[in-house]
Design a protein around this nucleic acid. Structure first.
Length: 205
DNA sequence: CGGATTTGACCCGCGC
DNA sequence: GCGCGGGTCAAATCCG
């Protein structure tokens, strides 16, 4: 039990699976968390969801348990979960949307950090916050701001160890990471230059 | 002024 | 069937 299993309470989700120890990251507060960005940023097409390398067997179990079998569309693109929310707009007929049980790849990891929000290179918009049972700290809900991207993440501080922040990602980005591209572009340019240089030197030799 | 955040209300699934 | 807890919506508010 992470915090406490709550005998009677409903556990709708089987507790975000943490990556196995090696993959789990526990960066110290002083250092920038070292994520496995490569795996995070890998574009995963809907078809290939299940052979995600970083996924532990537990996670695959989880993916199966959450009923992904039926929806192959999955993966954030076809969501429209809140597709049309009854035009009315009055409080009365608010939210008639049915949440379909979407199964998207989810993975959680812990970071030891003072600030809840770790900069993963994507832009997130907060859309909710809930107090969680048996936890003094609320859980925050974020959504990727990219138009076509439907990735969500939850951020929550552990009640047991308040220096640890648990971030749960749901879905995969279908667009490149802005910051990463920004950071990578000069490197790519240099690589191009180097390769050109190498070509010309080879010709000279 | 536009986008992001806050926050209370609503909806839904699950256990009893 | 009811209550609880989690997830989401959307109006209000904040901020650059």
């Amino acid at each position: 039990m992470e915090d406490s299993p709550q005998g009677g309470s409903s556990q709708q989700q089987p507790e975000p699976q943490l990556l196995p120890a090696p993959a789990r990251l526990l960066a110290s507060a002083s250092q920038v968390p070292q994520l496995d960005w490569a795996s995070l940023l890998l574009p995963r097409v809907p078809g290939s969801l299940h052979d995600v390398g970083a996924m532990s067997s537990q996670q695959q179990e989880m993916a199966g348990a959450s009923g992904c079998s039926s929806s192959t569309a999955g993966d954030g693109d076809g969501e429209t979960e809140a597709g049309e929310k009854s035009g009315g707009g009055t409080k009365g007929d608010k939210k008639k949307t049915k949440k379909k049980k979407v199964s998207r790849p989810r993975f959680a990891f812990q970071t030891r950090s003072e600030n809840d929000i770790l900069d993963d290179g994507y832009r997130w918009r907060k859309y909710g916050q809930k107090s969680v049972k048996n936890s003094a700290y609320p859980r925050s809900y974020y959504r990727c701001t990219h138009h076509t991207c439907n990735v969500k993440k939850q951020v929550q501080r552990l009640a047991r160890d308040t220096s640890i922040v648990v971030t749960t990602y749901e879905g995969v980005h279908n667009h490149p990471c802005e910051k990463l591209m920004e950071a990578l572009s000069p490197i790519l340019k240099q690589l191009q230059l180097l390769s050109q240089l190498q070509c010309s030197t080879n010709q000279l030799i």
